[in-house]
């Protein structure tokens, strides 16, 4: 897990953006200079650029659309993305890749950088989300992501949850799929992401072999869970 470049992908609503931000904080806390690239050209809602100010407060450099175009539905990528990739000052570079294989295609234009510098490409999987509800679906998604991005997926981040209906039983049921998937595809599970507010409830059932990654949900307005 010591790659400089980490690419976070996955299906719509799998928790990519939450994890990307949390991971950026996580690495920043370790003392690394972190650059976070919002490459979500598909979905203008729930994007990490909305949280850019808070991230900046923690010394994380966020690059997305050109300043002034944050609210334009123009997927204009900033040339500063090159800067994060090129400048060794940034010890960790995290890509938050928007929606599905389609969003992953935008990675293609940076392909030479990944090819030479190396990368880790993790996908978020929530077995309770459409598109990753069984091994077959998830396998297809991974294949498509790899084709579109011209990159290889190197890790799975579990994000097993049913929102506020999550229970330890539900979590364990989801784990079965996650593990089958990991075994079938020979892709390791690198983290089990857990929302902080459910951590106390879930930790007792999470097998010790897993690294648990607690995340304070930032993107979801509190009123949505009232």
């Amino acid at each position: 897990m010591e790659q400089r470049i980490t690419i976070i992908g996955g299906a719509y609503g799998s928790g990519k953006t939450e994890f990307s931000m949390a991971y950026a904080f996580h690495e920043a806390k370790k003392g690394y200079q972190v650059g976070l690239i919002d490459l979500d050209i598909v979905n203008p809602y729930f994007r990490s650029r909305d949280q850019a100010e808070e991230l900046a407060g923690h010394g994380i450099t966020v690059v997305s659309t050109e300043p002034g175009l944050e609210n334009a539905d123009i997927p204009a990528l900033s040339p500063r993305i090159y800067g994060l990739l090129q400048d060794p000052f940034y010890q960790r570079v995290v890509f938050d890749v928007g929606g599905d294989p389609v969003g992953a295609r935008a990675l293609g234009r940076f392909n030479p950088y990944f090819a030479t510098a190396g990368y880790q490409y993790w996908i978020l999987v929530n077995p309770y989300r459409p598109g990753t509800r069984n091994v077959q679906e998830a396998t297809e998604l991974i294949a498509k992501l790899q084709t579109a991005s011209r990159l290889r997926i190197t890790g799975i981040v579990g994000n097993i949850n049913l929102g506020r209906e999550t229970t330890p039983e539900i979590w364990l049921e989801g784990l079965v799929l996650l593990e089958t998937l990991s075994d079938t595809l020979k892709i390791p599970i690198v983290y089990q992401m857990v929302a902080s507010k459910y951590a106390a409830m879930l930790r007792p059932v999470i097998p010790e072999k897993y690294a648990v990654f607690e995340v304070d949900l930032r993107m979801r307005p509190a009123w949505l869970d009232m």
């Binding site: 050209i41 997927p75 990528l77 992953a104 295609r105 935008a106 990675l107 293609g108 234009r109 940076f110 392909n111 030479p112 579109a148 991005s149 011209r150």
Partner: peptide, 12 residues
């Protein structure tokens, strides 16, 4: 359209 074609500008 390098971005949506998923290519470097020169490849595009």
């Amino acid at each position: 359209c390098p971005t949506n074609w998923g290519m470097t500008p020169v490849e595009a």
